[in-house]
Design a binder for these strands. Structure first.
Lengths: 241, 241
DNA sequence: GAAGTCGATGTCATTGTATGACATGATGAG
DNA sequence: CTCATCATGTCATACAATGACATCGACTTC
């Protein structure tokens, strides 16, 4: 199973329309949103794959995907693959201009750069909705052996360094093999008001996160997060709960 | 009727779940998406207002709004108002990092600044999905009498300068009173591949768009759009159809 | 205090809309 | 050519979506 398949298998939301401890979601709504999230997680997705991942018949999935396409949330290319549609892009732009998202990656990018320079590892900025984290910015390590490829990808929070860090604000969390074998991620959450989680992760091969480097990595990560919080606060964003 | 009410009344999607010349959207899906778009257009919205605008009973609207909240697309504050939720923020960040949206506003902002400096009027960057345009960035005029308040707002494309410009790439379109009385908008589309429409608009009081200023405004607008296209193309974005 | 209004929420009988079994068509590989 | 796979359409049916109605809570007015 390739990395991409592993990632895909792991981020696909459960096809259960109703979370056991949450509100009853009308079945059809749950299904449509499942399909939307599947396509977005896959980036490009055929009808059959979406139907399989959503555990729906092709007929039912086609109906929902067509509906989402008709409303502009998805679009379909000549090869029959669904991907992000114009309405979702417009909404994303609108939402972006309304929130800290507008400044977040811009503000964080130089800090990611600095973190990578100090540690020699790849650094990532992640946002999270409580179930899924999405890596939205990165600075890659310049080493010959480096971690690449997570930007734009979503990971489940369960079991990951990112998830643990978001649950324990202020703590630096280290996990190995949670998302990829032999890969160590070190994460710390950024203090934010509101429901959007934000974190910075440092990611690299396990053997480069031994005890001696770890202290240094942790220092650098803490500096980056502290600086991001400071910069966003200075810019008028109230980050403290 | 205040400006805000006018804007809201004009951008609310028709509650008809099936567009007459498009795919059949399952009724429940159409309703849920209508409500989502209503809340996003309103920015903050109570159950009763959303139900009224969507032409649904409060009970039905509550059910859908709760579903969208449960899935993270909306959230609800202590005052009972719905607004953008964490999953939508995460998706927006993810979508942003995948597309030209990532660079668009950053690249356009200095051009908006320049356009406003040259013309003395407020300039706006808009994105569109073909039905609705959303203003996502602005530079305000520094004059005592200036146009303000459109950033983050959505406008229907029908009848507006923005809509006409998007339908006629390369043309500079002028409209007065389409969105607000006595306000003139001058728009030109930015050439983009894909389904997302992008345009720059210059907006100000009608009396400042007379024949003599108009030529100058048009020149400046064309320069801004040409430069944005050039910059995006240089940055690797294929804009030409 | 009582009465009224409004918004939010819950219940339940009903029906119409969502659904999937099945069929068909198109395409590509061997 | 056959076969497999993917996409799409049809239609009978049953169950999930729905709204009429009731209840509750908060607030305002008299």
């Amino acid at each position: 199973m390739s990395l991409y398949d592993m990632m895909s298998a792991m981020v696909i939301p459960s096809p259960i329309a109703t979370s056991p401890d949450e509100v009853a979601v009308p079945r059809s709504i749950g299904r449509a949103l499942d399909l939307l999230e599947i396509v977005l997680a896959e980036h490009r997705c055929t009808l059959t794959r979406a139907a399989t991942l959503a555990d729906l018949t092709p007929t039912t999935a086609l109906r929902y995907l067509r509906a989402l396409e008709g409303r502009g949330y998805l679009e379909r290319n000549a090869a029959g693959e669904y991907s992000t549609g114009p309405t979702l892009l417009r909404i994303a732009a609108s939402v972006r201009s309304d929130s800290l998202l507008d400044r977040l990656a811009t503000t964080a990018q130089p800090l990611l750069d600095d973190l990578t320079r100090r540690t020699g590892e790849s650094s990532y900025l992640a946002v999270s909705d409580g179930r899924t984290g999405t890596y939205v910015a990165t600075t890659e390590s310049t080493r010959a052996i480096r971690h690449v490829g997570w930007v734009g990808q979503s990971v489940p929070l369960d079991g990951s360094a990112l998830g643990a860090a978001l649950l324990d604000p202020g703590a630096v969390v280290v996990r190995t093999g949670a998302v990829e074998p032999d890969i160590t991620a070190m994460s710390r959450a950024v203090a934010t008001a509101g429901s959007l989680g934000v974190a910075i992760s440092l990611v690299g091969p396990e053997h480069r996160f031994g005890d001696s480097q770890r202290i240094q990595h942790e220092l650098a990560l803490n500096d980056a997060v502290d600086e991001l919080e400071r910069t966003l606060r200075i810019n008028g964003e109230d980050l403290t709960s």
